[in-house]
Amino acid sequence: MLRYISQRLIAMAITLFLIISLLFFLVHSMPGSIVNDPMLPIDIKERIEAKYHLDKPLVVQYVYFLGDFLTFNFGDSIKVQPKVPVFDIIKDKLPITIQLNILALLFTLPIGVICGIMAALKKNTATDHGLNMMVVLFISVPSFVIAALLQYIVAFKWELVPILLSAEQALTWTKFKSMILPILALSFGEIAIVTRYLRAELCETLNSDYMLLARTKGLSQMQATLRHAIRNSFIPLANIFIPMIFSILSGAIVIENIFSVPGLGSLSINAINALDHPLTIAVMFFYSLIALISILVVDLSYGIIDPRIRMGGKK
């Protein structure tokens, strides 16, 4: 197991290195200069570019960059918040994004699991068909369409919740109220995915022999499902649960924009549009890191949830 983990970590490091190199060359070969003020004298412009090593050849810049990167120094932001270390900017924007994500997950999982169980137990009945319709609908309709719809109907027409996120720092009731809509918009698609997946898994499990045994032993359908069937259906669910964190995170880029949440999503858009290279690289690196870690955690979690599975083992 330890050997497997270390192998995976080495592979991950190589992937990360390739990603960061790709990021560097793509971002730095983008057209346009960071100094785009036409009023600025040429020599000042050159001096600014020299300060960030932008006048040197790309390969030299790359060496500088790698040197900084190995000491976890992402540099300072150039344009979005000049002279502030990139790390601090991300640290600043992270809490609200994480709050939104965790709340969305907390909302998604129980509802998705309940819907999935209901659909599987009531297979081929009106409940099942209704849930199925919901699943197809929520998987198909893009989250930003749902967000716009919620914003217009719930916030503007009915005036139940604020239209935009409140600017308070602490997590108070008013802040939570304004977070309801973004959370809903983030959750619907994921709820549908969990429901569909769990239903398919449970339907298969419910037909297995050990379920019949459990019923003949005298357990009720409810007990048998909750104690025996669910456990086995959770293994494949782990497969989609952790990528879900990442999909919510990337879905949040648009949702944050719509509800003007000052989080990581809007930060990455600002960084890209302002040609703030260090910040862009850092944010994209952060997203890649989370994606890679989530893949690793999924693979490792198989062995913990179901001890019969041995990862990386030979035949």
Binding site: M12, L18, L22, L26, I253, M284, Y287, S288, A291
Partner: peptide
């Protein structure tokens, strides 16, 4: 390994 969204955006 690279998140597709990051790649497409770049």
């Amino acid at each position: 390994g690279v998140p597709p969204l990051v790649l497409v955006i770049l």
